[in-house]
Design a protein around this nucleic acid. Sequence first.
DNA 1: GTGGTCTAGACCACC
DNA 2: GTGGTCTAGACCACT
Lengths: 128, 128, 128, 128
Amino acid sequence: MFQLDLTDRRPLYEQIREKIKELIVKGVMKPNEKIPSVREMAQWLTINPNTIQKAYKDLELKGFIYSVRAKGSFVTPLDQIDNQGKRDELIREVERIGRELLYLNIPKEDIIAKIEEIYAEKEAGPDD
Amino acid sequence: MFQLDLTDRRPLYEQIREKIKELIVKGVMKPNEKIPSVREMAQWLTINPNTIQKAYKDLELKGFIYSVRAKGSFVTPLDQIDNQGKRDELIREVERIGRELLYLNIPKEDIIAKIEEIYAEKEAGPDD
Amino acid sequence: MFQLDLTDRRPLYEQIREKIKELIVKGVMKPNEKIPSVREMAQWLTINPNTIQKAYKDLELKGFIYSVRAKGSFVTPLDQIDNQGKRDELIREVERIGRELLYLNIPKEDIIAKIEEIYAEKEAGPDD
Amino acid sequence: MFQLDLTDRRPLYEQIREKIKELIVKGVMKPNEKIPSVREMAQWLTINPNTIQKAYKDLELKGFIYSVRAKGSFVTPLDQIDNQGKRDELIREVERIGRELLYLNIPKEDIIAKIEEIYAEKEAGPDD
DNA sequence: GTGGTCTAGACCACC
DNA sequence: GTGGTCTAGACCACT
């Protein structure tokens, strides 16, 4: 599914959180699809279940998944995510990165091309 | 100059590093301009000099500033920065953020507009 | 009749208990009225009958309903409920919430207005 | 400071969270005042530090306290709390409890008197 | 079998 | 010394 980088200085739960978010965002995991249980995931990655749980809890707080007792955890359908707050936060990141790229004299076309590329993939038909 | 946010979960030295980077990137600090000494900065922010030291060390490692013994630290002129490595790293960040925005159904125009805006500021004449 | 929220962190039986209590309290269900059987309710909500059973048991313990063997469960008439114990418990909750609202500088008029509103509905004629 | 009730069925961290919230709300702990460190509190209550940390994290998420690495945890000044969301949530609780009290034929004056009492304490001069 | 709570005890980064 | 991360292992409530 994915691998952890033990040399990475970020906490494990953060890496896990980001990896799962990536799978959701890329459409590998579909809305309402069940994600592996805390214990399964812990076994695969050979780390402690508590660490996985923390990652899941984080994802739940940020709205990417929801957990149902005794059932498991599932991908939140898009229409139930609060887009606005996230949008503003992400756009602020774009601004910070954009300024840095500008400073390095990287042409804006490089950035825009990358954006177009990502959005084109989706339109052309995602690989589900 | 700038203010620290104790609520922020990032370490202080990381906040300081990013604030200074921002000043450089936005053109507030010019190439070869001297940046405040560790002690001065520590006094202004009323924090431990070691914390400032670490921030400067980081900036030096990433190539944004250089230090001259017994003289102080200075902003690295652009042509002496290794653009390529940074460019690739930043573009990868753009990709991650772009995908998340796509997932949230934010139109690509929103992102591109922000990029255009940033690059336009510069062309129109930076605020020095 | 009502819907369950799987996202809600409370156990299902607790949600069900509160929903039924709400129907009784709002006067939608009248004293001595029969409430749906455990099996019916379980079918409607497509959940396990044991879960419903637990909710009913709770309501019986708190005096909101009574059950007659082989007949079903019924809404307890008001005059047979022990008001005093419940009153004190609820007033204590009012106190806790009131203090929190005071701390947040919410004017007491906001709270009182809400109370007046609820009590006015009844006097004006309940919606049975 | 306060005591835990081991017979209470709520998780320990939740009890701790509510007790601390109470101290803040009642004005026993002042804005920007330092609250006991995770370890101190754990010793006093003779429970595991992790449990305390979870309670503190919750309070931080809800905006009642803020934590500063290597410094400790502190009471959030009122003007930095998002009142609106909390207000609505609390008023909804008032509604639920109010309806139940109405159902039990408790006069609204009982509730209003309690509210007036709480708000009067403050005006008369809190015990700081 | 699931998510959640809790303990005991270790270690880390930060200041 | 502080908050934060992580492990190993136990137990609970819910369905």
